[in-house]
Design a protein around this nucleic acid. Structure first.
Length: 421
RNA sequence: GUGGGCGUAGCUCAGCCGGCUAGAGCACCAGAUUGUGGCUCUGGGGGCCGUGGGUUCAAGUCCCAUCGCCCACCCCA
């Protein structure tokens, strides 16, 4: 039997779901504290949205999209990221007519046809935030701070925030030009990929992982010398707010992001020890995106975090998000004739919001006790012939092993006493 | 899309140069304890040895293909 899920997908099993719930709770809570509201968009969109939003030259659009035709022959695509959909919704619902900025967050599955590896899946989950309608550098800082705050609240201690600016539509071409002139004479010595990148996308040469390339590039021209006064000023102000918030960052002039829509501020959150896919979150400003997909000229900024990668990071750093909580009460009964009595107790407990369980296998009392122990029950209610006769239950404190009889009508009160401890 | 490693019980893995009914630990079930857990002991269930083909008297073991997983490149969350 080799039935299995599609390549690059994975099930989140009942045993692991608690940690997801907990993580989602932290993500939502933190975003709400910063004034963001959730938005839920469809998981598929017209293909064109991503082609125009994410950018036709990106790897995502060129080779990683799950694209299909619906029965009317329209081209649809499973969303590879969340920002384009948010921009679409922002435009479609004329949110720009509301007081600005618009601050929202999303959480859900994304799809990319990539080769799976550690921290990389074909269906994965992202949490992200977007702010439309303000170019204030303070918002850049807010968004970055939110991202850092999340990993802190999740309990991560080891992480690096990398920060850079990639300039705007006016000044980036200048830098590209300067960089290309710098690279041209070195081109022959670079790795094969970089040799072609010099022509196709010189900025990407900067974050090549090849040791040789990095050495050759040692004295590469700083983007800060090429960008316009406005962009430089913006970047300075972002940094000063981050300083004020006490958010530590590493200036990383090699940081360039892979999506076409980014402008100005770019940032990434790295966690050491995660292997090759060590970026847990990343984002930046996208001042042209809304116009790019057909809306009014509106600036924006946001980030996305990979939830599977967050989980890997927590695991790697031995952060325990949840402690295994089992049932509170286990109801054990000694013979089939006593089952109705057990059901009554069970029902009473559940009605009182007490998490209670029983056995359905007609198993021996001993086996039921083992099961109670395994399910981490705090108390076991024992029902045998003696109890039935005298109208009582025996309660066993599973921690201390103490056991005593109570009147049946005192069940909830007595259980609560033990649970309180 | 490219390269490397690996697929044997629910899990982690052993199985040497091919040779008897395929093993261990953990987990599961039952009993020792005929009304009682966590420790211990005893017994038990469970494997088309990923799949398909080939070589051979004989394949878990060798060869090819295929699928899947892992790691890396690439890219990104």
């Amino acid at each position: 039997m080799d039935i299995s899920g599609p390549r690059g997908t994975h099930d989140i099993l009942p045993d692991e779901i608690k940690i997801w719930h907990k993580m989602e709770q932290v993500l939502r809570k933190t975003a709400e504290i910063y004034g963001y509201s959730e938005i839920r968009t469809p998981i598929f969109e017209y293909t064109e949205l991503f082609e125009r939003g994410v950018g036709g030259t990106t790897d995502i659009v060129q080779k990683e999209m799950y694209t299909f035709e619906d029965k009317a022959g329209r081209s649809l695509t499973l969303r590879p990221e969340g920002t384009a959909s948010c921009a679409r919704a922002f435009i479609q619902h004329r949110m720009y007519n509301q007081p600005q900025p618009t601050k929202m967050y999303y959480i859900g599955p994304m799809f990319r046809y990539d080769r799976p590896q550690s921290g990389r899946y074909r269906q994965f989950h992202q949490f992200g935030v977007e702010v439309f309608g303000t170019r204030s550098p303070a918002v850049d800082a807010e968004v970055i701070t939110l991202m850092v705050d999340i990993v802190k609240r999740l309990g991560l201690r080891r992480y690096e925030l990398h920060l850079n600016t990639v300039g705007c539509g006016n000044c980036r071409p200048h830098y590209r030009q300067t960089l290309t002139e710098f690279l041209r004479p070195l081109q022959a010595d670079l790795c094969r990929d970089c040799q072609s990148r010099v022509d196709s996308n010189p900025l990407r040469v900067l974050d090549c992982k090849e040791k040789r390339c990095r050495e050759i590039l040692a004295g590469f021209p700083s983007i800060l010398d090429s960008i316009c006064e406005e962009c430089r000023e913006h970047f300075e102000r972002v940094k000063s707010v981050l300083d004020l918030y006490g958010v530590q960052y590493i200036l990383d002039e090699r940081l360039v992001r892979g999506l076409d829509y980014y402008t100005n501020t770019a940032f990434e959150l790295l966690v050491p020890g995660l292997g090759a896919q060590n970026a847990v979150g990343g984002g930046g400003r996208y001042d042209n995106l809304v116009a790019q997909v057909g809306g009014p000229d509106t600036v924006g900024i946001g980030f996305a975090m990979g939830m599977e990668r967050l989980l890997l990071a927590l695991e790697e750093n031995q952060v325990e998000l949840v402690d295994g909580e089992g049932v509170e009460v286990y109801v054990a009964f000694n013979s089939p004739e006593l089952e109705p009595l057990a059901n009554i107790a069970l029902n009473e407990l559940r009605s009182a919001d007490i998490k209670a369980e029983r056995d359905y296998g007609d198993r021996s009392l001993r086996a039921q006790m083992k099961q109670a122990n395994r399910s981490q029950a705090v108390v076991t209610v024992l029902i045998g012939e003696n109890e039935a006769k005298s109208g009582t239950y025996s309660l066993r404190d599973m921690d201390t092993g103490e056991q005593f009889e109570i009147e049946q009508n005192a069940l909830i009160a007595e259980i609560k006493k033990i649970l309180m401890k």
